[in-house]
Structures are given as structure tokens and as C-alpha cells.
Design a binder for these strands. Structure first.
Lengths: 220, 220
DNA sequence: ACCTGAACACCGTTCAAGT
DNA sequence: ACCTGAACACCGTTCAAGT
């Protein structure tokens, strides 16, 4: 819905949508989702907040545009022969992008706005699931399950890291559990037997995803 | 950290933390996470926004307090004999509570702040995983995986529902995919073979959780 | 000891006016 | 056609003052 000015009537545009999205993307990458505001974009643009609305419908719209730009940056991985490996590699590309851009995860999880660019991945994931022997119904369900698991993994890991930042590196949930172990014998046994369990990060995601994929494929 | 006034010096308190948390909980339940503000709580309390800070450290703190109150309301389910059924029933209790209170999901996923009340569930989930034959390391990982899957399931389902609300009931992601099917043969095949796939809701969560649990237990 | 009003430093967005 | 300033209706929180 970009305004394409056919001809040259009226005042020439000083701002462009591309510039605006570019600045939004930079703020999001550097400062995160909370830091983005129309007023901030305007400031970096050297114009008034309201000028942005001539090129972009709303702040939500601006974020969606930034999201599709981000999707274009995802490197398309080499695809292995084995279909299950292929599934893994494809999801991992998405995981890596979202892990590096927490703001994008929030938008994607909450608003479900997909740009055309991401469909390259979707298409190949579908193919790979089918090659694993799943029906189309099974593929549809599998895709949805892995997407949910991926969103949850990133969300929980990010939340944990964020909470630790706020409270000077103390894993607060752990601390809290330790102080209440007395009332909960099984929790106590677990904390003693596996005291330094940290389930964050890419390696753990890969490990978990393998378990999940085995579960999905064996269930059919 | 509640201020316990020993003796009766000074002005008597008109407000109490319990009242404040009660009102916060009501706003959260009725209007959702975005609607909560100190100013709104103050209004319903019939006092100035700043009086709240005498009883509660910050808005974040207030939300955490409301969250623990919510945890107290979760009905503790009857636990079946079979350990895998037990795991399912316990997670489902948490799922139901979070599905009914989206604001709580946001807090829990982002801030990782747990109240003591929820540990009843944690303890029993641990026991059940161990009874399924998992080691303590395995249990720790399993717990983490299911938590991530649960968070992701709720988040994605809620996001989808929210997006549909905003755009008059149209499943936008689906619409969008249909319009780009031309470039993506596998996507097209899937959309034709499984056209009305809706993966939302409690029943699908149960179904998926069973697959996930089978995958986890068989992997050990 | 508890509560309040004014103020600070922010928001997204509307609307009428300027160039 | 494009940009702007003032204004609206909000935020959480600090700080000094009142009772």
C-alpha cells in the first residue's frame, strides 16, 4: 500500500518508507522491542513524529515491515539428503534468526504476521516432513507442534536470561526453589541429583527438537 | 516485605496490600494485561496513584503478587495411578489456568517469577516423571521441554485468536499463504489436502502432549 | 506512618494548519 | 502532496509537602 506518486505533482517527498523501516530495524536490533517508538524514529529521521504517518499506517504496521526485512536476511541453509536432518536444519535457521532478534519473536508469536519471504522455509519444511513419511494432515500438525515448541523454547530461554539480567545474574527461580525445598521432597531430590541444570540455548534446542521429531514420526 | 506496623504509631493505613492486589487481579482478569495501570488501580481504590507505592514496590511487583494469588486458585486435580496419565493431568491443570488468564502467561514466560503455590504442581510432576522411569537429569530435561511446549502452545494459540479478532475473524496467515501458493508447490499441496486445519485449543494440546511425552520417554 | 499534588519524562495518534 | 505544532489522552515514577 505504498503511495506511488505517479507524476510529480505537489511537494516532493523528503522521507521514504524504506528509510523509515531501515531506522526502525536499527533501533529494534540495537535496543530491542521496548525501545521502538514513533517519536524515536522521528528523532533519528530529523523530522516530526507525524511525518511518519504519511508513509506508514501505524506503529504496528511499521514493525511488520521491519519483520519482513529481517526475514530477507535469514541465510538459506544447504539442505541435506536425509529428510529428518533437513527438517532440523530448516528449523534451526529460523531459530537462529529469532534468537538473535528477540523483538521479532514477540511480534511473530503475538500477531502472527508473516511476510512472503518466510514462505521459502515453510515450503521446504512441508516437503521434508512429507519425505519423512507423514501425511499432509500429519505434516500440518507436525509443523504446528514444532512451531509451538520453537516459540516456547525461545520465549522461556529469553525470559530466563532477561530475569537474570535484572537481578544481577542470580537464577532467581532456582534460588526460590531451593528455599522452598523443605515442603517438596521430590523437588529436593531433583535439585540434589541434577543441581546445575541449565536448559537454555541452541544445543539444547537441537537435542530437544530431535526428541520431538522422533516422537512425531514414530506416532504415525 | 509487607510493612508490619508493630504498635499503633502514626496515621492508620487506609489502604492495604491485599485490597490493592485484589483490585489488580480483577482488572487483569476482566480487561487483560494491557489494561492494568497504577493510575487505574488508584482510581478504583479511590486514592492517588502514589499511595499504592507505600504498599507495593512497583507495578512489576504488583503483578507478581497477583500471579501468586492466581496460582492459589488452580484446582488441584485428582491424580491417576498411571504416571504418564498423571503427568498429563498435572500439566493440563496449569494449561487450563493459563489459557483462562492470558496476562499470567505473559508474566510467567517473560519474567520467570514463580510463587510458592505453584511448587505443589512442580513437585508432583517431578515425581510422576521419575515414576515413568526417567532419571533425575531426564526429568529435569523433560520438565523443561514440556514447559516450553506449553508456553509455546498457549502463546501461538492466543496470538492467532488475537489476530483474528483484530481483523474481523479472518485467519490472516491462511489467507496470506493462499495468495502466495503459486510460488510454493508443497505449500499448495498441503493447503489443498488439509484445507481447514485448526490446531488450536485444549484437545489439540492434549493430543500433542501425548506425542511429546511418548517421544521423551522412548528416547531414554 | 501514611497519603497527596505537582512535576518529570515519556507514549501513539488526531486534527487543523502551513508550504 | 507532504510535513508540522499543538493537543488529547494516556503512562510509571520521583520528590517534597501535607496530615
Amino acid at each position: 500500500m505504498e503511495k506511488t506518486h505517479t507524476g510529480a505533482r505537489g511537494r516532493p517527498a523528503r522521507l521514504s518508507r524504506t528509510d523509515i523501516v531501515e531506522i526502525a530495524k536499527r533501533i529494534l536490533k540495537k535496543k530491542g522491542g521496548d525501545a521502538l517508538s514513533m517519536r524515536r524514529v522521528a528523532e533519528e529521521l530529523g523530522s516530526s513524529p507525524m511525518s511518519i504517518y504519511r508513509h506508514v499506517e501505524s506503529m504496528d504496521h511499521l514493525i511488520v515491515l521491519a519483520l519482513d526485512e529481517l526475514a530477507k536476511e535469514i541465510p538459506k541453509p544447504d539442505l541435506p539428503e536425509d529428510p529428518q536432518d533437513r527438517v532440523l536444519v530448516l528449523w534451526l535457521a529460523l531459530y537462529d534468526c529469532l534468537a538473535a532478534n528477540p523483538w521479532a519473536l514477540d511480534v511473530l508469536a503475538k500477531e502472527m504476521s508473516i511476510g512472503p519471504t518466510i514462505l521459502w522455509f515453510v515450503d521446504r519444511i512441508i516437503k521434508s516432513f512429507v519425505d519423512c513419511g507423514l501425511s499432509y494432515e500429519g505434516t500440518s500438525q507436525a509443523y504446528n507442534m514444532v512451531w509451538k515448541f520453537t516459540v516456547g523454547s525461545l520465549m522461556v530461554d529469553q525470559g530466563q536470561t532477561y530475569a537474570e539480567e535484572r537481578f544481577d545474574g542470580t537464577p532467581i527461580a532456582r534460588q526460590f526453589m531451593i528455599s522452598h525445598m523443605g515442603d517438596h521432597p521430590n523437588l529436593k531430590a531433583l535439585m540434589s541429583a541434577a543441581p546445575d541444570a541449565d536448559h537454555r540455548g541452541r544445543d539444547r534446542y537441537v537435542e530437544n527438537l530431535k526428541i520431538l521429531l522422533d516422537g512425531i514420526i514414530n506416532s504415525k
